[in-house]
Amino acid sequence: MINFNGTLVAQDSNILVQNRGFLYGDAVFETVKIVNSKVLYLEDHYFRLMASMRVVRMEIPMNFTMEYLEEQLLSLTDKLSISNAARVRITVFRNDGGYYLPIDNTVSFLVHATATEAVFYSFEEKEYEVDLFKDFYITKQLLSSIKTTNRILNVAASIFANENALDNCLLLNDSKNVVEAIQGNLFMLIGNKLITPPVSEGCLNGVMRKQVLKLAKTIAGIEVVEEVISPFELQKADELFVTNVIKGIQPITKYRKKTFGVNMSREIVAKLNEIVSAI
């Protein structure tokens, strides 16, 4: 028997008592946006998931092809009758058994989906304030660049932001450089130079980050680079914005006493929506 929320239940009911994703954070995940029964950036999500599984030494099933992944995601949204747009997460976890050392490296997965109202990426011109989160730091290592279920730093930063009436926080690495925001990659525009931290600094190798890097290079007069961003440079920026595949672009309008423009953010959102409209 185990006690689950004050109720004694049979241990063989397996309410997470052996689930390695719950016990050790032994899981990786991808969150995708589905529009009109099409997975946006499917190839990028698939290859990042495969790379993540390899990094943590999970055994990739022979049938786990890109077509199989797409089928698993779409079968759920079809079953839920989500026709326009959906936020869908697939979590892959090592199978039950063992302590730190697993019994084997085989995996299971689960998919969760929720409908979203917006088919296109929206551009919201409202105040969006951020500050630095200094309680804990991201380490400059390969594990930081993949999506594991160990996101306790992001959880703590989210609580800090909420307690301080902030919309988001910028996370630092162990060299005290700015790496990313709580739920997305960071871009900084200074003059005609658009900068985002390199993956080697510990930031997530984001799917939307890749798209923005590609799209920004099509904008005349803009130099796009991957460079280290120090906290001191934030005060010099003309624009700051956060990217992720669900939101698209979130412009930052205020950091401490500095306010920022949004023109670059607006232009990139328009380019992203051109891609969506072609689906």
Rank of each mutant, 00 (worst) to 15 (best):
E129T: 11
D104Q: 12
N244W: 00
V276R: 04
I152S: 13
L132M: 13
V224W: 00
T65Q: 13
A118W: 06
I279G: 06
K38W: 04
K140P: 02
E124W: 14
R94S: 05
N3I: 15
S13T: 15
K126R: 15
V107N: 05
L170H: 09
T253K: 03
H45T: 05
L170A: 10
F241Y: 05
V269S: 09
A161I: 11
E67F: 11
Q250F: 05
D167H: 13
T65L: 07
V199F: 05
E239P: 02
Y255C: 05
R266P: 06
F93H: 10
S277W: 08
E117F: 10
N14M: 15
E117M: 15
F123E: 07
L170E: 07
L234D: 01
T253R: 02
C203P: 00
N5T: 14
A220Y: 12
I279C: 04
E30Q: 12
Q211H: 09
V28M: 10
N192P: 00
L215P: 00
I275Q: 07
K257I: 11
F29I: 11
V212Y: 00
N192M: 08
V276E: 03
E127M: 08
A115E: 13
K236G: 04
Y46D: 01
A278P: 06
L110C: 11
P102L: 12
V107M: 13
A86E: 01
E233L: 11
Y68E: 08
V179R: 00
F241L: 04
M50G: 01
M208D: 00
T149H: 06
D96Q: 13
T116D: 09
T91W: 07
A157H: 03
K38T: 10
L166W: 12
A85S: 13
P198S: 05
K176E: 12
P197V: 07
E163K: 15
V228A: 06
T148S: 11
V212M: 03
L240W: 02
K236D: 12
K126C: 10
S75Q: 14
D131M: 14
N14T: 12
F4P: 08
F47T: 09
